[in-house]
Design a protein around this nucleic acid. Structure first.
Length: 206
DNA sequence: GCTCCGATTATCT
DNA sequence: GATAATCGGAGCG
């Protein structure tokens, strides 16, 4: 096979770099797991213990332990009482930085993804959003700490990468909302809707 | 098409 | 006890 026009398989060194370099480079990458392939259109960077928006900001805990481990592993966490979200750990071990996989397009295994996401879900929404993408790929608590370079994952970069990444503030954060650490493919239909942090819900006490 | 709002629970203060 | 790196359905135009 010609080596010039084909996609390339990522290796672990890709994730050993700074999370701010890795994040934009992940756009267009196709992640495959458990019968579904997703082309990433949107990601966010979380940079260790100095980033007020990061789960690692207050130091190591049992939840964020994976973030403090080696790069190229998945950090999967549970949020809002019902959703799982997936990150890839980046940088040197101990840095506790990671890229949140925020959205993508299902490019293979659509029937399997549909089965996981539900019959009423439109093709555009199969993996457009971090919890949707995680569910489409069949990931949950068991995959926290999983090695992306083990047997069950495959990551490929297309022959023609997308153009320069668009960037802006991260979604849904109350802290560090000024940092433009969300990266997406400009104009792509498989990028999620931007939603600023929810204001304090006026909890009714009764 | 849009905006609003409730669901549901692990985690941390 | 409050919050959260979200989602999907209801209501309106």
């Amino acid at each position: 096979m010609g080596s010039g026009l084909t996609e390339t398989t990522l290796d672990r060194t890709f994730f050993e770099r700074s999370v701010l370099d890795v994040a934009p480079d992940l756009l267009g990458v196709v992640v495959s797991h458990a019968g579904v392939s997703v082309r990433l259109t949107e990601v966010e960077a979380y940079d260790g213990e100095d980033d007020p928006g990061s789960h690692a900001f207050r130091g190591p805990t049992s939840r964020n332990a994976t973030m403090f481990g080696p790069p190229g592993h998945l950090y999967v966490y549970f949020t809002y009482g019902m959703h799982w979200c997936a990150n890839v750990v980046c940088g040197p071990e101990g840095r506790a930085s990671a890229v949140l996989l925020r959205g993508g397009e299902v490019v293979a295994g659509a029937a399997r993804a549909q089965q996981r996401r539900g019959p009423a879900v439109r093709a555009r929404d199969l993996a457009r959003g971090p919890a949707r993408l995680t569910q489409a790929l069949g990931l949950d608590r068991e995959h926290d700490g999983a090695d992306l370079f083990g047997e069950t994952f495959d990551l490929r970069r297309p022959a023609e990468p997308p153009g320069p990444a668009s960037r802006g503030p991260r979604v849904g954060l109350r802290h560090a909302a000024d940092l433009p650490w969300r990266f997406w493919i400009g104009g792509d239909r498989f990028v999620s809707d931007y939603r600023p942090a929810t204001d304090r819900p006026t909890r009714r006490t009764r």
